[in-house]
Amino acid sequence: MQVIPAIDLRGGSCVRLRQGDYGQETVFDADPVAVARRWKEEGADFLHLVDLDGAKEGRPVNTDVIRAIVSDVEIPCQLGGGLRDDDAIKAAFDLGVSRAIIGTRAVRDPEWFTSACERFPGKLVLGLDARDGMVATDGWLQASETTAVELAKHYAEAPLAAIVYTDIARDGMMSGPNVDATCRLAESSPHQVIASGGVTTIEDVLELQRRGIGACILGRTLYEGKVKLPELLNQLGAV
């Protein structure tokens, strides 16, 4: 099980939202680079970066902070938020990230995303953010008429790096992940599925591992100290 700390960026600070609501924001640290360094020092070998401003604007916004994080920690990072065309994807890779997460345009323009996967093989992550099983777009502000499972099946043959599945209703709520929905998605796709949204306790992580999920993203639970990253990694190593 790979544990991936999340660093959500808004206005240059490290924040967390509740259920993707920009009106329910908690600022955890004004120095995201220091946060990234902390997670690396505590054992993280991969980071999940989200440009929340970029998700709303439809273009990368927190570029200076992202570049500084990647340069400082020297471990792989994946980036999502506002990456909706080839230029934005190339700009993300120019910042030094290893993988780019595409959500909104993958829903709206499957033909483009399929071809983008061919242009960037093994480097694009499909971001599936769902509310009641239906995919949401535009920084979770718009609902689509596509289910997460349908979209995952559509891209089964694409050379994806992974799929990040987030249950919006669970995100930031410290209520546990939607394990069943995550597993249904994993069963419908040949790609690695990374669980996100609501992962709160060590037991949550162990349950995902028992159910065959190989990676998960942790956010608020780390920032509020409910889970200590070294303790979690030690326990996973002992399983």
Score class of each variant (00 low, 15 high):
164 V>S: 12
161 A>C: 06
190 P>N: 00
202 I>S: 08
200 T>F: 14
201 T>H: 06
156 A>V: 13
137 T>P: 08
128 L>N: 04
190 P>C: 04
128 L>C: 02
149 V>H: 06
134 M>A: 06
173 M>H: 10
176 G>A: 01
134 M>V: 14
141 L>E: 15
166 T>Y: 03
176 G>W: 10
151 L>H: 08
175 S>D: 12
170 R>K: 07
149 V>Y: 07
142 Q>W: 06
201 T>E: 05
185 L>D: 01
128 L>S: 00
153 K>C: 05
206 L>E: 12
198 G>T: 03
173 M>P: 03
151 L>P: 08
152 A>M: 12
189 S>Y: 06
181 A>S: 01
138 D>P: 06
192 Q>D: 10
157 E>K: 10
202 I>H: 15
189 S>K: 03
162 A>R: 00
155 Y>L: 11
192 Q>R: 15
149 V>K: 05
163 I>N: 06
202 I>G: 12
158 A>V: 06
136 A>Q: 08
151 L>V: 06
195 A>T: 02
193 V>N: 01
145 E>S: 10
149 V>L: 13
181 A>M: 13
172 G>K: 02
164 V>P: 11
168 I>K: 07
128 L>Q: 02
134 M>C: 14
172 G>P: 04
164 V>Y: 05
192 Q>M: 15
150 E>T: 05
142 Q>F: 10
174 M>L: 15
181 A>I: 05
185 L>A: 00
174 M>F: 10
183 C>F: 07
193 V>Q: 01
126 L>N: 02
184 R>W: 11
165 Y>L: 07
134 M>L: 13
127 G>Y: 06
199 V>E: 02
174 M>N: 05
166 T>S: 01
174 M>C: 12
203 E>L: 10
173 M>D: 01
155 Y>W: 11
126 L>A: 00
200 T>C: 04
166 T>F: 03
205 V>F: 15
200 T>E: 05
174 M>T: 05
142 Q>P: 14
168 I>R: 05
186 A>E: 00
177 P>Y: 08
132 D>M: 09
163 I>H: 01
137 T>C: 13
200 T>P: 01
139 G>C: 15
158 A>R: 12
172 G>F: 14
200 T>Y: 02
195 A>I: 01
144 S>F: 07
193 V>F: 15
163 I>R: 05
126 L>F: 03
175 S>K: 15
177 P>R: 08
147 T>R: 11
193 V>G: 00
181 A>V: 07
153 K>Q: 15
144 S>H: 11
189 S>G: 03
139 G>Y: 12
191 H>D: 02
159 P>C: 07
164 V>G: 02
205 V>Q: 13
145 E>F: 05
198 G>D: 08
194 I>S: 02
146 T>P: 08
131 R>A: 09
151 L>K: 09
153 K>V: 13
181 A>E: 00
192 Q>N: 11
206 L>Y: 05
188 S>G: 00
154 H>Y: 08
136 A>P: 08
155 Y>V: 13
169 A>P: 12
163 I>V: 04
174 M>A: 15
190 P>E: 01
180 D>K: 11
205 V>L: 11
178 N>K: 04
185 L>S: 00
146 T>Q: 14
152 A>I: 07
164 V>R: 09
128 L>D: 02
170 R>Y: 13
133 G>L: 10
167 D>P: 04
154 H>G: 03
147 T>S: 14
161 A>I: 04
